[in-house]
Nucleic acid binder design. Structure first.
Length: 607
RNA sequence: GCGCCCGUAGCUCAGAGGAUAGAGCAGCGGUCUUCUAAACCGCUGGUCGGUGGUUCGAUUCCACCCGGGCGCGCCA
């Protein structure tokens, strides 16, 4: 039994009661039950009486009174009282027992924070999905933090989530990138004994990849190419012919991908599935690269994989037309503003066709009942224009548009000393995710990325991120966790027995000493109130794809704990009080640890 | 021009139909003989971009306008 989401249970009971109490042919109207804005308004506030005022043509306060009386009976010892306030709100004040309940279940239950969704979904959550054309950048880090946190949050509420990274290793980007890397290395290759024919030299020199990173990557690849990858130094003279070129490109692409996966795992993400774009064409990378390089073989008819299946499917559905040698998909039939090319006049498929093929493949891999499946993509901010075409394309292929949820991960600006740090390699500034992690650490980086709403622009304050003080919210939360751990360490020194401090025995502790009428009691009731809200916070974060709700909650919870710690001593003389406070503290610690866990941030025992 | 995102405190941003609009930073002033001062306490700070509309109620929803970002390729 997980920690009860009281908000949901209460809400259901309120709806039922209203249905019984009033003559409502259409059932009770939509209403909200939300955490109360202030302690004096109780634990939950409900606007049902206000919503009923219209249909029933009665004063909302009268309706409220009637509801309050009936609910007081129905809810029994769950609530201490239900009162009507303001224009007609119903304020629910939970009983001491109901407030203590969550602490007990957090301490007692095997998995208090793993809920069962009303409608559990099988979700494929795709994020980062960078081209293997250089290291991951700061923006990729934001998407990685978002994706991995969202995956955990969705799992917590009962969905089954696969985290996936789509590797764009086929297509023109990787060819252009490889071209430029090879161009940068022509002299070096010659020096170590490669014989480079003119046509390949010419090909390499046509590279137009603008990334500044090419130069740096080249230096790093130089050694690899020469030694580990191809063993050239030992072999001696080697002809850079077509076969060797494919070898070289596929090496460059794979090595970049490998470096990206290293960064990804360092960043505490849980990507289990790497899907390679080239596998839409063929299982091996090299033949696919060959198709993209050699004009004679690029025609779609030479492709064999799911790309051609998808193409045929779209043709069958007749949503296509030919114009100037290109094949167009009539995405306007599905709400797009203009039709899109899926096969160029030179025979190469466009990203839209491969994207449709990829999503079809993903859709099939998800398996199971269509109603219970969902694909979520997290895309970079420069791709929002592709949402419509992609959804239209999927619809053309027979997948309902609401089966793909595209979330946009916004821009990131780094700031230092109040100034924007231009992300330029030339100036020696931070560009890559690894450089950022070197400077601020994984925990802080993840927190900063998850603090804002996903699509909003993010200013990343580097000065703040490196500070180890309350000004840095990530440390502030972690410190609350560490402080609680420390209370327990001291408790052991002060003669509390190990078995007294275990979860099982703390769960049995009488919590009434928490409900006193002094300052301590007030603070304790407020902490309990916040614990009650936790399941609702996670549920809301999952439903709205909004991890920032979890960060905000944890920050405010830590903001209640620190003053409490300062003002109220846990390990007091009175053993009953001390044990009750220990139980509360342990429950708090578990909530903090779980919330941080959802975000992929560590919860240290000491700092 | 069309489309998407954003306009909330000096700065960076939460809040998404409700009851006096929140937090952090910045600024000013205090607190370590007491479970970690990576902490705590106090003060200062707002016509929620504008105008209309829907509603018992709008910072939140709708329309239009203004300002900023991004996208609009047979690149991805």
């Amino acid at each position: 039994m997980p920690l009860d989401n009281l908000q949901i249970s209460l809400s259901a009971m309120i709806g039922q009661t209203a249905g019984r109490l009033f003559d409502l042919p259409d059932g009770p109207p939509a209403f909200d039950l939300s955490p109360s804005a202030e302690p004096k308004f109780g634990h939950f506030a409900c606007n049902l009486a206000l919503q009923l005022a219209g249909p029933l043509k009665k004063n909302p306060r009268q309706i409220g009174e009637a509801l309050a009386v009936e609910l007081g009976k129905v809810l029994g010892n769950l609530v201490e009282r239900v009162e009507v306030a303001g224009p007609g709100f119903l304020n629910f004040h939970l009983s001491a027992g109901a407030q203590a309940g969550p602490v007990k279940s957090i301490l007692m239950e095997e998995e208090p924070f793993r809920w069962t969704a009303e409608k559990p979904l099988k979700i494929n959550l795709e994020y980062v999905s960078a081209n293997p054309t250089g290291p991951l950048l700061v923006v990729n880090g934001r998407a990685a933090a978002l994706g991995s946190a969202l995956a955990e949050i969705l799992r917590a509420v009962g969905h089954e989530v696969t985290e996936e990274f789509y590797v764009n290793d086929a297509g023109s980007q990787v060819i252009e990138f490889s071209k430029s890397v090879i161009r940068e290395n022509l002299n070096h290759l010659q020096r170590i004994g490669w014989i480079i024919n003119d046509s390949i030299r010419e090909w390499a020199n046509s590279g137009e990849y603008h990334e500044k990173t090419v130069e740096e990557i080249s230096i790093q690849i130089e050694k690899d190419i020469a030694r580990e990858a191809l063993g050239v130094l030992e072999v001696g003279k080697i002809l850079l012919d077509e076969d060797m070129l494919l070898e070289l490109i596929s090496y460059i692409v794979s090595s970049q991908h490998f470096l990206q996966t290293k960064t990804i795992s360092r960043f505490n993400t849980n990507i289990r599935s790497y899907f390679f774009e080239h596998s839409l064409y063929e299982s091996d990378l090299k033949p696919v690269i060959r198709k993209w390089i050699l004009p004679s073989e690029i025609e779609l008819k030479n492709c064999v994989g799911s790309i051609i299946k998808t193409y045929s499917l779209l043709l069958e559905r007749r949503g296509t037309s030919n114009d100037e040698g290109a094949v167009w998909l009539k995405t306007t039939d599905y709400g797009d503003e203009k039709d899109r090319v899926i096969v160029r006049s030179n025979g190469k498929p466009t990203y839209l066709l491969t994207d449709i093929a990829y999503h079809l493949d993903k859709w099939e891999r998800l398996g199971g009942d269509e109603d219970a499946k969902l694909m979520i993509d997290i895309w970079g901010p420069d791709h929002h224009g592709h949402i419509l075409p992609t959804k239209a394309g999927l619809q053309a292929a027979g997948i309902p548009p609401d089966k793909l949820e595209v979330l946009i991960s916004g821009w990131v600006t780094l700031k230092r000393g109040g100034e924007i740090v231009s992300m330029s390699k030339r100036q020696g500034n931070i560009v890559t995710l690894d450089e950022l992690l070197d400077e601020v650490g994984v925990d802080v980086a993840r927190y900063m990325f998850l603090e804002r709403s996903p699509e909003a622009h993010l200013d990343f304050d580097l000065d703040l991120a490196v500070q180890q003080s309350s000004e840095n919210p990530a440390y502030y939360i972690q410190y609350a966790h560490a402080r609680i751990a420390s209370i327990f360490a001291v408790a052991r020194e002060e003669g509390f027995r190990e078995d007294e401090l275990g979860d099982d025995s703390l769960a049995k502790v009488d919590l009434t000493p928490l409900f006193t009428d002094d300052d301590a009691g007030e603070r304790q009731r407020e902490l309990l109130r916040q614990i009650v809200y936790y399941p609702g916070v996670v549920a809301g974060a999952a439903a709205s794809y909004a991890p920032q709700r979890v960060t905000a909650y944890l920050h405010s919870l830590a903001g209640l704990f620190h003053p409490y710690y300062k003002k109220v001593k846990v390990l007091v003389e009175d053993r009953g009080t001390a044990l009750a406070r220990l139980a509360l503290s342990r429950a708090l610690r578990k909530v903090l640890a779980h919330g941080l866990g959802l975000l992929g941030i560590s919860a240290p025992e000491s700092m």
